[in-house]
Amino acid sequence: MTTRVALFTTCLVDQLFPQVARSTVRVLERVGATVIVPRGQTCCGQLAFNDGFWHEARAIARRHLRVFADADAVVVPSGSCVAMIRHFYPGLFQDDPETSSLAAEVGARTYELSEFLATRLGLTDVGATSHARVTYLASCHGYRGLGLLEQPLRLLRAVRGLEYVPLPRADECCGFGGAFAVKMAPLSGAMLRAKVAAVRETGAAVVTGTDVSCLMHLGGGLAREGTSVRAMHLAEILAGEGAAG
């Protein structure tokens, strides 16, 4: 059986972290999926939505739904974008029942990468190797919004050679929060310092997670404090490209 999946790259991965998209494709193909990248995709609209601009978010969301309307399964290397599509799209179109029900359908077929691998495909070992001491950042929208924790950790623990160390105070937000990171920059920065300290306590060489947004913020904080800890997306580890990032 071949599984056909459509990759939704997400805006940040597309523009700033293309290696994460390539890693996602590599992992999916390694487990036997056929990956297509539907044309016309851009962004889920979360940035505009979270900042109060629902009209603008609706335009972007409508486009996203059109692009992915026919996909059997949409895989996304971001918990936050999946939470946006699955949980917030239907409400965004509450005055437009047709689009709202399309949103509900697409949302039900849209999966965060670890969720797709572990829950949908029931996998544990995706054939990856790494030799790093790794800790895991549970991004809030994935963790609280989608209930992601067991899935990414299961996949991570099955990586050959990888030493997993839990992150202390893992229930606390890293402070990214989209526009919050710049609108409330001093607060975002204070939350970041606490998360950087937690990562340093683990002695890990790599911090991984399901969202490049939080990882970009945390990685930037780790770099600013002069640490050698790298932030890498889960897909990069599962692709077995231990040194990338």
Binding site: T9, V13, D14, Q15, L16, F17, P18, Q19, A21, R22, V37, Q41, A181, V182, K183, A185, P186, S188, G189, L192, M216, H217, G219, G220, G221, A223, R224
Partner: peptide
């Protein structure tokens, strides 16, 4: 406006091309 970001953390160097561009 980028200062609000870099005041508190570094920003990653952008890649040569986006993922979609490479396709």
């Amino acid at each position: 406006p980028g200062d609000a970001w870099t005041r508190y953390r570094d920003f990653p160097a952008p890649p040569a091309a986006s993922f979609l561009d490479t396709l």
